[in-house]
Simulated assay, not measured.
Amino acid sequence: MDLATPIGIGVGFGVVFASQIMEGGNPMSLMLPAPLLLVFGTTMLVTLAGGTMQDAKNSMAALKRAFTGNITPASDVVPAVVQLAERARREGLLALEDSLKDIDDEFLVKGVTLAIDGTDPDEVREILESEMIAKKRSDKQSAKFFADAGAYAPTIGIIGTVMGLVHVLENLAKPEELGHLIAAAFIATLWGVMSANVIWLPLGSRLKRLSELEAARMEIVIEGVAAIQAGSNPRVIAQKLTSLLPVGQTVPEAA
């Protein structure tokens, strides 16, 4: 499991509250129910209003992936493709059917299965690319959902502060309560800005990055399946797929 998101968000909030304590404040003074309800509740509702119910459901499902998602590097797919290519060259495409049982990558299994079934190479590529495009669109919408939430939250926080200041003006005759009321009014702005920059925008960026990594792996698979169908030399396939790897990724030495 990739812990970048839970560590980043968790420690980020920890630093904020630690700073509050270092300045002599009480972190619980920031946990006022009304501003929290206004900022988080309204942010989710107006973000929902900007899309469809299905978009919201998909985004909530993607939320778990954002925190716990562990993407298989594209480089890990290369050895599996090369091994399939070597066997296909020795024994033919039909011999690959047994090898698919040991492969965990469903996208690779689907592509090789289409090849084994005798599907035209152009059609195989078209099918796989269509699936990749559909996934990228779905991932893009999920990332947009949280990016939109990050755009709405600060403004909603300001609305909460204005509402609080109106309440302050209603109580000018009670000077002993003004300090508390003014502080409470600005809590909404604090949570609006903080939730946008510590939660919503990072989640949107995380989902976008996960989508990019998955797309890179799927592109490797598409090129690999096409090369296997074409009967290319496994060494040439390995070199070609390695050249397509994202920067920083290398094929495991065991391959």
Results as ranks from 00 to 15, higher is better:
139 D>F: 05
80 A>G: 03
189 T>S: 12
252 P>V: 13
176 E>T: 08
114 L>D: 06
200 W>P: 02
152 Y>F: 15
224 G>K: 06
158 I>E: 05
128 L>F: 11
65 R>I: 15
61 A>F: 02
113 T>D: 10
220 I>S: 07
121 P>H: 08
199 I>P: 01
138 S>I: 11
74 A>R: 06
253 E>K: 12
155 T>D: 05
186 F>K: 03
247 V>F: 09
138 S>V: 13
196 A>P: 05
252 P>Y: 08
174 K>D: 15
42 T>R: 02
196 A>L: 03
77 V>P: 01
27 P>A: 06
139 D>Q: 04
241 L>E: 14
52 T>L: 01
171 N>I: 02
29 S>W: 01
106 E>V: 09
98 D>E: 13
243 S>V: 11
154 P>T: 03
213 L>Q: 14
215 A>G: 05
57 K>C: 07
47 T>M: 10
102 D>W: 01
140 K>Q: 12
54 Q>L: 08
179 G>C: 08
130 S>A: 15
28 M>Y: 03
125 R>W: 01
232 S>L: 10
15 V>E: 10
53 M>V: 13
87 R>G: 12
173 A>W: 01
223 E>D: 13
242 T>V: 04
121 P>M: 06
33 P>F: 09
9 I>H: 00
235 R>Y: 00
88 A>E: 12
83 Q>F: 01
11 V>E: 01
157 G>A: 03
175 P>Q: 06
190 L>C: 06
87 R>F: 01
121 P>V: 11
121 P>S: 07
175 P>V: 09
194 M>F: 15
158 I>K: 03
89 R>A: 08
238 A>D: 14
69 G>E: 04
154 P>F: 02
17 F>T: 07
112 V>E: 09
27 P>W: 15
50 G>Q: 10
123 E>C: 03
214 E>Q: 07
254 A>R: 03
176 E>S: 13
174 K>C: 01
119 T>E: 11
221 V>R: 06
187 I>A: 05
225 V>A: 02
59 S>I: 02
135 K>L: 14
140 K>P: 01
161 T>H: 04
159 I>P: 00
159 I>T: 07
111 G>Y: 11
193 V>K: 04
206 R>K: 15
143 A>S: 15
91 E>P: 00
116 I>Q: 05
156 I>D: 07
242 T>W: 00
40 F>M: 11
133 I>N: 12
131 E>N: 11
137 R>S: 15
97 E>P: 05
158 I>D: 09
123 E>R: 04
196 A>T: 10
126 E>P: 03
107 F>G: 07
189 T>E: 02
236 V>I: 15
238 A>E: 15
159 I>V: 15
66 A>G: 09
242 T>S: 13
220 I>Q: 12
151 A>Q: 11
211 S>F: 04
169 L>I: 14
33 P>Q: 07
101 K>H: 15
101 K>C: 02
236 V>S: 13
146 F>V: 10
156 I>M: 09
189 T>R: 04
65 R>L: 11
235 R>T: 15
205 S>P: 00
90 R>D: 05
17 F>I: 07
220 I>W: 02
177 E>L: 12
240 K>Q: 13
22 M>S: 12
141 Q>M: 08
159 I>H: 02
183 A>Y: 09
247 V>H: 07
183 A>R: 04
5 T>C: 00
212 E>W: 00
